[in-house]
């Protein structure tokens, strides 16, 4: 069945999308995922059969919006409890590789 969707499915560039997601893939992983995702995308293609022309999208099931609380200072998590999980740290700050030369 020719459709814009199956063209999309053929077009998925797993290497490029993985880069967007900051995920390094080995060549074997990329190839396996390419085949699996093409199969999954071909399956979800069936959504194209549904007439959604006058349908409002549902972002989540309970229509709750603009939940506010008083803007008051309150204690956060304990610094020591948080920093014990840091892969690298110095003086309660997270250390990362140099970003700007």
């Amino acid at each position: 069945m020719a459709s814009g969707f199956s063209e999309h499915a053929d077009q998925i560039d797993v290497g490029y999308v993985a880069h967007l997601a900051r995920l390094q893939l080995s060549e074997e992983e990329r190839a396996a995922m390419q085949a699996q995702l093409e199969q999954i995308l071909a399956y979800v293609d069936q959504l194209k059969e549904v007439d959604v022309s006058d349908v409002t999208p549902t972002a989540h099931a309970v229509p709750v919006a603009n939940v506010l609380r008083p803007d008051e200072a309150r204690p956060g998590l304990d610094t020591a409890d948080v920093m014990r999980n840091a892969p690298r740290q110095r003086d309660d700050q997270f250390l990362v590789p140099k970003i700007v030369e």
Partner: peptide, 20 residues
């Protein structure tokens, strides 16, 4: 991702409405 959002994500959210 850009160019696919409407075709996949937005459409799925609309189908979600129909399921509800």
């Amino acid at each position: 991702s850009s160019g696919y959002y409407d075709a996949y994500y937005l459409r799925a959210q609309k189908v979600r409405t129909l399921i509800r």
